[in-house]
Write a protein that binds this DNA or RNA. Structure first.
Lengths: 164, 164
DNA sequence: TGGATATAGATGCAATTGCATTTATATAAG
DNA sequence: CTTATATAAATGCAATTGCATCTATATCCA
């Protein structure tokens, strides 16, 4: 086995560091711009859209919170409270999940579906303006391709793994 | 002039939408992983690093808050409070800016420079692990290139613009 | 069966962020 | 000079997030 300092603490190349800095910048700038457009239209933030979209797509318009967690990457407690707020404004509803007493169903309401559609009418042109207008189709595909590679979670030895 | 509905509300193509979704995903996953590594090393969050790095690079190790704002993309009030916390832990120091009574200098301390270096020793391998290991050099360059296009702020008509 | 352990989701409390406003100073316009 | 307007930075307060823990139920294993 080679020198562990090279295995455990490799320096990123300049190219890699530049890609990282630009990833942070680009997403922040585009996200802020899109959120701003939503706010101007007096619509709720993007997190609400993500939740509504996942529910709208799901069978019977409902999901378990833990499923939503995985799909939205929201932390458990943040999702729980986001659902509180969305329930209070009537966009979703929590129902009992009889097959497992610990669980819940979260169901999208008609008002929720309407809000999802309403948000998309602002969100879609915002994506186009802040991202689409800056890339041609080939570049968008290329970017999506490269970014997909980054979303693979980094390897971590599982708890009960035999290999050290 | 062509149909205004096409000008004002263009739908993003599937490629563009996919690129956007993956941009959000990829940056969240990589950012969370890097922040996690910092936390495990009992180091402060990335925002602190950004501030320290900008100051360390600046002439005489000091900048005006509004300059830091532009460079870090932090909101004014958030930067102000981040500086409060950093000052309290001795990493930076606020000093009078005599040429403009409204302004301040923010200066990095020796402890601040030490912390920047200490954080880099964790941050650098984290960038490599969570991003560099997933791309080759050519891909990293390509990604950086594509992302650069997105960081150009979208056009907004300036207040006093003549054209409507 | 009966702990021990794991999982789903909620919640109390502290830290951080967002928003609006305030304070202080500078610059512009009459 | 004096008032109006703009800019730099700080701050009060509400909303959101993070962290740890709690409650309830389910599963595993002796």
């Amino acid at each position: 086995m080679s020198d562990s300092s090279e295995i455990n603490s490799p320096q990123p190349s300049q190219s890699v560091t530049r890609a990282w800095v630009r990833l942070m910048r680009a997403q922040q700038i585009v996200l802020d711009a899109i959120e701003q457009d939503l706010k101007v239209a007096e619509l709720p933030p993007l997190g609400w859209y993500d939740v509504l979209l996942e529910l709208a797509r799901a069978d019977d318009g409902r999901l378990r919170p833990y499923e939503m967690e995985q799909r939205t990457l929201l932390a458990q407690h943040n999702l729980s409270r986001l659902l509180d707020r969305m329930e209070k404004t009537g966009l979703v509803q929590r129902e009992v999940f009889s097959e497992d007493g610990r669980g819940r169903w979260v169901m999208i309401t008609e008002a929720g579906r309407a809000m999802q559609a309403r948000m998309w009418r602002v969100y879609a042109p915002a994506i186009q303006r802040h991202l689409g207008d800056k890339l041609d189709e080939a570049q968008a595909d290329q970017l999506a391709e490269l970014l997909a590679a980054l979303s693979q979670k980094s390897y971590r030895a599982p708890k009960n793994s035999i290999e050290g």
